[in-house]
């Protein structure tokens, strides 16, 4: 298996781990971590598949898109963390209300 496909599979694995944690964890900080790891997985698949050029330099377009994505991810994380802190300040919890408990 070539380097590109090895890392692409690692990327899929990261995406899966993130998605699982996003669903099973109740704490919002953990959900934000999970989203970040899902994003890292997607970025890794993109960049790994850009390297399927043999010995030639890899495709620069996915690289540029991933750099854009990393910056968007950090701004989304900052906004999500602020929303979480606001919820925490209002309700004392850092979890979303669960319908089934009522």
């Amino acid at each position: 298996m070539s380097t590109a496909f090895l890392y692409a599979l690692v990327g899929t694995g990261l995406f899966a781990l993130g998605l699982y944690a996003l669903i099973v964890h109740a704490h919002l900080l953990r959900k934000i971590l999970a989203l970040n790891i899902m994003g890292s997985g997607v970025f890794m698949v993109l960049v790994a598949l850009a390297k399927r050029t043999g010995d030639a330099p890899p495709d620069a377009v996915p690289h540029a898109m991933v750099i854009t994505g990393i910056v968007v991810a950090v701004s989304a994380t900052a906004l999500a963390l602020t929303l979480m802190l606001k919820l925490n300040a209002k309700s004392g919890h850092a979890e979303l209300p669960d319908d089934r408990r009522e």
């Binding site: 070539s2 590109a4 496909f5 692409a8 599979l9 899929t12 995406f15 899966a16 698949v45 598949l49 850009a50 399927r52 050029t53 043999g54 030639a56 330099p57 890899p58 495709d59 620069a60 377009v61 996915p62």
Partner: peptide, 17 residues
């Protein structure tokens, strides 16, 4: 499913390079 799709992609692709 995702892993299968990734592995079924052509091993050589130049994309937009």
């Amino acid at each position: 499913g995702l892993g299968y799709v990734v592995l079924s992609l052509p091993p050589y692709a130049t994309g937009l390079s």
